[in-house]
Amino acid sequence: MNIFRLTGDLSHLAAIIILLLKIWKTRSCAGISGKSQILFALVFTTRYLDLFSSFISLYNTVMKVIYIMCAYATVYLIYGKFKATYDGNHDTFRVEFLLIPVVLLAVLINHAFAPMEILWTFSIYLESVAILPQLFMISKTGEAETITTHYLFFLGLYRTLYLFNWIWRFYFEGFFDLIAVVAGLVQTILYCDFFYLYITKVLKGKKLSLPA
């Protein structure tokens, strides 16, 4: 464990909690892409199946359980409790255009052609593009609630910090996982446009609205 990975995980946890609280407190999931949240639930489900097969640390197990519970709670709030506030007309990204290539990639490019390994690879590839429906929805509505931009900021920051974690682990532990690094780079690059808007607008107290 290193400071980049720890702050990355805490940033990820912060994003997940911010979103859950936003929906719960405002009793509304306006502006939130349910499709992205379903993809995140799928990412955690396929990646954390090893919860039952291997124990790494208490921290690892506790965080995985929290992530999975929050992901499904968020999906439930969007499609169940507060579905009346779900903006389906703007959440129209064709997720099959993500799932099919990700499945093909996971089967073709992985570390080992074993079920658990392919599921892990699928979850890594899927996570790198899972935010696209949310970003697409914001581009369609032309704006985002400020709390939603904070959610996106911490979510983007988490994988950016993981990039530094991988640099750290490469130099100090000789650890290197090309699949995770490449997918993490793609994931972080997808946030660059948002990061720019967040820093130049939201941090200056303005509302995030497009076109910039």
Binding site: R5, D9, H12, R47, D50, S54, I56, N60, M63, K64, Y67, H111, A112, W120, Y162, N165, G174, F175, F176, D177, L178, I179, A180
Partner: peptide, 10 residues
């Protein structure tokens, strides 16, 4: 290859 070890990251 070392990445074949179990995935210890979240």
């Amino acid at each position: 290859a070392d990445e074949l070890q179990e995935h210890d990251e979240l």
